[in-house]
Write a protein that binds this DNA or RNA. Sequence first.
DNA 1: CAAGGTGCCAAACAATCGTTCGGAAGGTAA
DNA 2: TTACCTTCCGAACGATTGTTTGGCACCTTG
Lengths: 163, 163
Amino acid sequence: MRDLAKAVNLQGGSLYAHIDSKEELLFELVNRAAAEFIASAEAVPTDLPAKERLTRLVRGHLEVIVHELPNATVFFHEWKFLSPELQAKVTALRDRYEGYWRRAIEDGVKTGEFELEDVRLATLFALSALNWTYQWYRPGGKLSLAALSKRYSEMILSALEAR
Amino acid sequence: MRDLAKAVNLQGGSLYAHIDSKEELLFELVNRAAAEFIASAEAVPTDLPAKERLTRLVRGHLEVIVHELPNATVFFHEWKFLSPELQAKVTALRDRYEGYWRRAIEDGVKTGEFELEDVRLATLFALSALNWTYQWYRPGGKLSLAALSKRYSEMILSALEAR
DNA sequence: CAAGGTGCCAAACAATCGTTCGGAAGGTAA
DNA sequence: TTACCTTCCGAACGATTGTTTGGCACCTTG
C-alpha cells in the first residue's frame, strides 16, 4: 500500500481517504479487467459466421491482454486472494465471458464449420492458449499484435475446424 | 515459513537447521518441477514421427502438471520472485525444455507432417494451451487425464498439421 | 461569516514476516 | 569418557504489513 501511495505522491495512510481497504482496490482492478474482456466479446456481432466471430474474439482477447498488460497480470494471478464473496463475483463475470466463446463455438458446430467432441474443452483450450500470452508477450517487440492475432486465430480455427 | 514448519511439526525457526533461506526452498521446488518436465520430454524417442512425438510430449506435460499440481502451481507462479541469478537458472531449464518441443515441431515441418509460418510461435501456442490446465483441471473430476490428453493432443496436432 | 466536509501528513497501532540466538537433548566418533 | 554435531524449542530481533488516529489546511455550502 505504501508503494501504491508513493506512486501517486501520497503517504501510505492517505489512501484511506479514498478507499476502505486494500482488497477493495484489488477487486476494482480485477473487476475492470473482467469488464474489458466482456466488452470486447460483446462487440462481436452474433450474426456473423462462427469462424469470423472466433477470429474477432481472439483479436479482442489479445487486445485486452496486450493493452492492459499489468492489469491483466493482476487479473490472472491475484483474484484468488479475494474473499470468497468477491471471488464469486469475479467467477460470475469470467463464466459470462466464457459463455460468449462457448456459444460461438457451439454455433460453429451446428453449422458444420467446426467438428468437436467436447465444446467446453475446446473453449478452454482456446482461452488457455490466449491467456498464457501475458506471460511472454511484450508490446514493442518484433511480433505485432496484428501478426500474433492472425497466427493464433489461424491455429485455433485449425484446431476446431471440420476436416 | 511458520506455516511450512507447522506442516512438518516444527517451530518456525527450526527449519533453519536444514535450509539457509526461504528462497533456497522456493528454488528447490521450482527446480524440481523443471527437472520433471525435462525428464518427461527426454523420455520421448526422437526417432518417432513428429506427430507421435508431439502426442507423447503432450501426454508427458499434462502428467507432470496433474501429478504435481501444487508444485506446478508454484512453478508457474512464483519463479518470478527468485533472485535474478536463480531466475536465470530456471529460465535456462525452461528454454531447454522448450527446445525439445521446438525440435519436434521443426522436424515435423521438415517431413511435411506440419505446415507452419512460425515454429517458435507454434511451440509457444501448444505449451500455452497446456500450461493453463493447472488453473482449472482437478484430478478425480469427470475428465480423466487420458481423455484430456487425447483431446488436447488432437487439437494441437490439428492446429499444426499440413492440410 | 460560520460549519462541515475532504485530502493529506506524521505518527503510531498491532500483526506478521524471515531469520537469529542461546540453550537443551540426543547421537556419533574419538 | 569426552567432544562435537545435529536437531529442535522458545524467545526474541528488526523490518514490513494493512490500517487508524489526531490534527492541519483547504474547499464548498449555508
